[in-house]
Design a protein around this nucleic acid. Structure first.
Length: 279
DNA sequence: ACGAGGTCCTGCGAGC
DNA sequence: TGCTCGCAGGACCTCG
């Protein structure tokens, strides 16, 4: 579910609520989401630990604790994070994976309906190895066109698949990949090694633009995504192609098309604007 | 090195 | 109304 803008929105909201708070009572309701360490170990480390920092890396929420360990939360398709002060209703309680009391009667909660999300606990060294395997941050100040071309090129993979490959570039998922490719007028199925410099420049600009706009809008709510306060994002109202198959292209009015030919994920595009060979 | 396809899960809407 | 089927913001794996 959440891609870079959604995770950034969550992290910005959670940071002031969690930093300097101690995790007192910690409850884990589904042990199968814990990766790398035993659930028992995870609980032992979390219990009584204090939050030093709340950050985002690509689509991951990274909660650094005063012990030096990092709780890394991957939300995947349906994961959500919230802070609440009152009891959750039955429906909200239902898919709680982890909850931790953070003082003043407030709780930090990780919910995940499909439970594809994961929890990891990484020490300094493990974190260094982990983050090194993820591609650069597209919105970092030092990330320029050359860096973008370098991480994206050199493969025959479809450019959309390369864009969503977290080892190449961090944080871009299906929604923002579709939007950026449409805005850059690039055929999503085009092999990355057949994209020219001008097209890379357009894609670089549009990837960063859609991510920034997504953050400004508080993310995209297609179905499950909610911010930490339960609010919806608003970028779904701005989407030009994602979720709009059959509707007219905003540029040329041609009916948009959806295919699942690239990595089995829904790709929606305008064959005319994006120069897709439909034969 | 690449693509295809299965796997982990649950919920929802379409279609019969 | 009630069933089955396919699909869903992701990422990891194996196989050919």
């Amino acid at each position: 579910m959440p891609e870079l803008p959604e995770v950034e929105t969550l992290v910005r909201e959670l940071r002031p609520q969690l930093v300097r708070r101690s995790l007192t009572t910690v409850r884990l309701h589904h042990r199968d989401v814990v990766r790398g360490v035993s659930a028992t170990h995870l609980l032992r480390v979390l219990e009584g630990n204090r939050v030093r920092a709340v950050q985002r890396r690509a689509k991951h929420v990274v909660i650094t604790l005063t012990s030096g360990d990092r709780l890394v939360i991957q939300l995947r398709m349906t994961g959500s994070l919230l802070v609440h002060g009152r009891a959750l209703d039955a429906e909200r309680r239902r898919h709680v994976v982890l909850e931790a009391a953070i003082g003043r009667g407030r709780w930090f909660v990780f919910r995940d309906v499909r439970r594809l999300g994961t929890l990891q606990l990484l020490d300094e060294q493990a974190w260094a190895a982990y983050t090194a395997r993820i591609g650069p941050e597209p919105l970092d100040a030092g990330f320029d066109l050359n860096a973008f071309v370098q991480c994206m090129s050199g493969t025959r993979q479809a450019v959309k698949k390369a864009l969503m490959d977290q080892r190449r570039l961090g944080g871009v998922g299906n929604i923002y990949a579709n939007e950026a490719l449409f805005r850059a007028r690039i055929d999503p199925s085009r092999p990355a090694d057949r994209i020219d410099r001008r097209a890379w420049r357009r894609l670089f600009r549009e990837v960063r633009a859609v991510l920034r706009e997504g953050i400004s809008a508080g993310g995209t709510t297609v179905r499950d995504y909610r911010t930490s306060t339960g609010a919806t994002g608003s970028y779904q109202h701005v989407l030009r192609v994602y979720g709009r198959p059959g509707e007219p292209c905003v540029r040329c009015r041609t009916a948009l098309v959806t295919t699942h030919a690239i990595d089995g994920r829904a790709t929606t595009f305008c064959w005319r604007c994006q120069g897709v060979d439909v034969r």
